[in-house]
Amino acid sequence: MTFSLVLTEERLYAKEHCCSEMSEQVNMSALDAKSPLLGSTDKRIYWSPVFNEYGLICQPSAEVLQIQHCPFCGVRLPESRRDQWFERLESKGWKTWGDPIPNELLSHEWK
């Protein structure tokens, strides 16, 4: 079981995903109830633009269980870019979570 990593300063980015149901969940912006870390408690799917990871939001906790297939259409989701992101981050001198993360690495365009 792998949990998704949620970067609190990650920039949001709306896009079309594998199917309309996934796009609706991931791009949800009408937030009725709030979770301090993840936004709407109506939202059930988390997508990280930085890592290109998808996950099921486990409410009421702030845990996100990483998924490899769309729960709506069954298509295989793209590979995570988490390992490549950490390699790039470390190449910039980053050592620990106390170190600042460069702004260019908090966007989906970092690659």
Rank of each mutant, 00 (worst) to 15 (best):
L37E: 11
L38H: 03
L38S: 03
L38A: 02
G39C: 08
S40A: 15
S40W: 07
S40N: 02
S40C: 05
T41F: 06
T41M: 08
D42L: 11
D42A: 04
K43T: 05
K43D: 02
K43S: 01
K43H: 04
K43N: 07
R44M: 14
R44T: 15
I45W: 00
I45K: 04
I45C: 02
Y46Q: 06
Y46C: 08
Y46V: 04
Y46N: 06
W47N: 12
W47Q: 11
S48W: 00
S48R: 02
S48L: 01
S48F: 09
S48I: 00
V50A: 04
V50P: 07
F51A: 08
F51R: 13
F51D: 08
F51I: 12
N52I: 12
N52T: 12
N52V: 09
N52D: 15
N52S: 10
E53C: 09
E53W: 08
Y54R: 04
Y54Q: 01
Y54K: 02
Y54A: 02
G55L: 03
G55S: 03
L56I: 11
L56H: 11
I57S: 05
I57P: 04
I57M: 12
C58E: 11
C58I: 13
C58L: 15
Q59L: 15
Q59S: 13
Q59D: 13
P60S: 06
P60W: 05
S61G: 03
S61C: 11
S61N: 03
A62H: 14
A62G: 15
V64L: 00
L65G: 02
Q66M: 09
Q66V: 08
Q66D: 00
I67N: 00
C70G: 08
C70R: 06
C70D: 03
P71S: 01
F72D: 06
F72G: 00
F72V: 03
C73H: 00
C73P: 05
C73E: 00
V75R: 13
V75D: 02
V75N: 10
R76L: 13
R76T: 15
R76W: 06
L77P: 07
L77M: 08
P78R: 03
P78C: 02
P78G: 01
E79T: 10
E79L: 15
R82V: 11
R82W: 12
R82N: 05
D83P: 06
D83I: 05
D83C: 08
Q84Y: 09
Q84C: 09
Q84R: 11
Q84G: 14
F86H: 00
F86C: 04
E87C: 12
E87D: 14
R88E: 13
R88Q: 14
R88S: 11
R88N: 09
L89F: 02
L89Q: 01
L89K: 07
E90S: 12
E90Y: 13
S91D: 08
K92E: 15
W94Y: 13
W94T: 02
K95L: 12
K95G: 06
K95R: 14
T96Y: 11
W97N: 12
G98M: 03
D99R: 05
P100E: 09
P100C: 09
P100R: 05
P100F: 02
I101L: 01
I101F: 04
P102S: 00
P102G: 05
N103V: 13
E104K: 06
E104N: 12
